[in-house]
Write a protein that binds this DNA or RNA. Structure first.
Lengths: 155, 155
DNA sequence: TATTGTTATACTCTATAACTATA
DNA sequence: TATAGTTATAGAGTATAACAATA
């Protein structure tokens, strides 16, 4: 591979390749918690904005409402999230983490740190900071929403 | 988002986010050619190793043989690839690009350059080189095969 | 009439395994 | 008996659209 007449792999392909790898490895790492990366992202959002409803969450992440129902169903079934009918507008369900959900989120944080350390194991601390800085620059320039994975996007 | 009590987005998530974005944008860019990123990757490999057979290609990319059949079928239907029964071992089919396939590959190269320029538009030439260098370092350290997207992996 | 949440259906994708032909 | 390629089938995932409850 990579014979002389082909140019070295470009940054765009590297990002796609590494991104898929990182996502796959992360899915492996959290598998034993019984949740997928999509669930993990939702847990984070509910923790930050407790009480938000499904439609707003769906719109924010770029998920179809019907898919969000299933995702939340699964989190409820696992005892990580609770739906509470809003008393102000009984059409809304306010989403909150259960105690178990909070503990899962704490475990997730530790997994994220380990995942990060492994994935960037080839880099010095300084290089890792540089990579993150350049990454944030691209996220900003491309108009991406920080902390929202495009894998949700189905609209 | 990103309120004070949350740490800044880590490199691993940024890679996953940007990778999915890059892959999605690339798919958009080549859509008018009537092919998917998976097809594009296969075209590149056939160009580099003309005459290779489906099983070897499938093994190299990490695709199930049955899926490779469909992918090649589609490329044949579009007139980009030709299957030739090997005269040495008639079980093998040697894969080669057609003239149209070669032209498509040239168009792909131009699209890759434009894609790269857009995606890294926020970075200076030097920053882009740094990003690619760090990316290659991680690819190597993680044991990934250069130029092979993990999206193929279904084994 | 509009909105939230939910359910039903149809469709796509693809992993598995059986099968053909060559060796 | 083993390998390359192919086909058939079944299951998972999900987009679409219809629906119920509330406003």
């Amino acid at each position: 591979m990579n014979s002389a007449k082909h140019r070295p792999t470009g940054a765009a392909f590297l990002l796609a390749q590494l991104g898929a790898h990182a996502a796959g490895r992360f899915a492996d790492r959290i598998g034993h918690l019984g949740i997928t990366p999509a669930h993990a992202g939702i847990l984070r959002f509910i923790a930050r904005m407790p009480g938000l409803n499904q439609q707003r969450l769906a719109k924010f992440l770029g998920v179809l409402p019907s898919r969000m129902v299933l995702l939340i169903d699964e989190l409820v079934d696992k005892g990580l999230v609770q739906r509470r009918r809003s008393t102000k507008d009984r059409r809304h369900s306010e989403l909150v983490l259960t105690k178990k959900g909070e503990r899962t989120l704490e475990r997730l944080s530790k997994i994220v740190v380990a995942h990060e350390a492994d994935l960037c194991g080839a880099l010095t601390r300084e290089e890792r900071d540089t990579l993150a800085r350049l990454g944030r620059k691209i996220v900003d320039h491309q108009g991406l929403t920080p902390d929202v994975h495009p894998g949700y996007r189905n609209l």
